[in-house]
Design a protein around this nucleic acid. Structure first.
Lengths: 134, 134
DNA sequence: CATAATCGTCAGCATAACTGATGATCAGCG
DNA sequence: CGCTGATCATCAGTTATGCTGACGATTATG
């Protein structure tokens, strides 16, 4: 087919993964994007919205909607930072933490199964990290 | 960073490649998508629009716009098939062929450089093909 | 105190994937 | 032949995402 074109391969591999993640995460009302946001917030110093966005490499103007949706479902809270009142500090609720833990297990399982056909899944992951320069 | 999440890695690796391809192909007025369409049409039996779409795994309703844009630039032509007048057969013009050949060389070079940091670029490609089941 | 920078938000634009409907055409079958 | 259903291309509309540029509020700089 078109399987010699790198863009084609990456695009459709990503689409496959996105589909499978979406199916598996549907019971939690999450998709892969939502879950990534939760994972950015889950531990350590509470982050401002901009910091969350830059961790996820998501555009600054998109993170607001993403957080709105998670906040409506009671998974995260935004609080004005007392030290710098321009910043909205994002924290997980208790419900957010438990949802994250369950959904994160599911995500790991999905990724394992997704990569199961490869001779060396870790090496594939390392290749991707190399390409991103991380 | 978020580099343990497969979706994150694939998404941003794809974004990087798309950017670099777009830059390199800009002199030809093409992007990676356009070039893939040309490559589907370049040789062999002339294809209907639906056949082009399915080769590229592009939605049937998107391929029309894609071809409009290529046709405006004089790179492809659509002809009603005489045997089956429902079908629009897509063929490259002479200009389309020469543009394709030049741009395709550029694309190959971009891909080579893009994968240059990997210990084994071919193996990476094979991994992607495996994941797609091709 | 005055200016510049930062944070979050908003409106708007562009691309892409997709659904469902339509008209034209063709294939199969009685 | 004529009817029915399928196929092809197209169209309108929806959704999701990424981005630009502007804004008010707030903080940092000097």
């Amino acid at each position: 087919m078109m399987s010699d074109r790198l863009g084609y391969l990456l695009k459709h591999v990503l689409a496959l993964l996105t589909d499978e993640q979406a199916k598996a995460l549907a019971p939690y009302g999450l998709n892969g994007r939502d879950l990534a946001v939760l994972s950015a917030v889950v531990a350590g110093e509470p982050l401002s919205q901009l910091e969350v966005a830059s961790r996820l490499r998501v555009d600054r103007t998109s993170i607001g909607d993403l957080l709105d949706s998670l906040e409506e479902r009671g998974l995260v809270e935004r609080r004005r930072s007392p030290e710098d009142r321009r910043r909205n500090v994002v924290v997980l609720t208790a419900k957010g933490e438990s949802t994250f833990e369950e959904a994160e297990r599911v995500r790991l399982q999905v990724e394992r199964e997704f990569l199961a056909s490869l001779p060396d899944a870790d090496r594939f992951r390392e290749d991707l990290q190399l390409l991103l320069g991380e």
